[in-house]
Amino acid sequence: MIPLYLITGFLGAGKTTFLKELITLFRNKRLALIINEFGKESIDGVFFKDKGAALSEISNGSIFCSCKLDQFEQVLKNIAQKKPDVIIIEASGLSNPQNVHRILGQPDFSTLDYKGSICLVDALNFHKVLYTALACKQQLSVADMIIINKTDLVTQESLNQTKALLGEIRPGIPAYTTSYGRIEKEWILYLKSGKDNNDKPLRQVADITLQKFLLDVTSVCSMELLREFISLIAKDTYRIKGFVNKGGQNWFVDCVGENIKITPYHGTADKLNRLVVLSGSGLPTRKSIISAIEKLNLSEDVLLK
């Protein structure tokens, strides 16, 4: 049987950082990763290309959604045939994994041993996204372990509130706290997949508010202007991600709500000068982007796709 781990967590919870930590627990094992991005442009996958893991990417939709399910099942079948030692799936931050048991319970996947779903929670933004994003509740509903990440960004009081809230939503599920996605080996050892939590199958509900925008940034636009532009729109987004080249240097743009991070990047940058913006729950993202472009006079520099 091939052990299979599922990583979930809303946008910006730190899944990719966590995955980097998690794979270190499986040194010397033949590892197969499936990385799923909601946006068309794959960004996270770039980080894993040099790690020796067999990497499959499924972009432009959730692997649990009917529009990508066929592709996901096919990819998983192919991987299972190659018999790796471990399979890890990173679901998109906007995915609804409530059908995971049904999918993995199919005869085609009888060689897989589903260890469970590890749900990453962003300690800073949890309260906000829990009430606005349906995906957050859906991911928690099938979690077998919860990891509260980014605890360095919050006070003890706030962390306690988050823990209490999670205890109410999913009583009895192990919940750990961490920063920078760090993980202890013991946590994984005791991970055990519950069966479907309800006697009856959970009802699948789509989140029709989810939106994705692509922004092409031309070379004319300066870094200062781009930073200002991002700071104007960030509050109206869940996530902004992508690589840009400014002043002969590649930069990684990685924002979670108003938490803006733009850092130098030295690896292979895919889809340079394209930012993926994800939003939902009634955030006026399109309006905000258009108004920021107008305000900063960037109609030639930032193109909304």
Partner: peptide, 8 residues
């Protein structure tokens, strides 16, 4: 109404 706040 999920689209009450956004015209998408």
């Amino acid at each position: 109404h999920p689209l009450a706040e956004s015209m998408e």
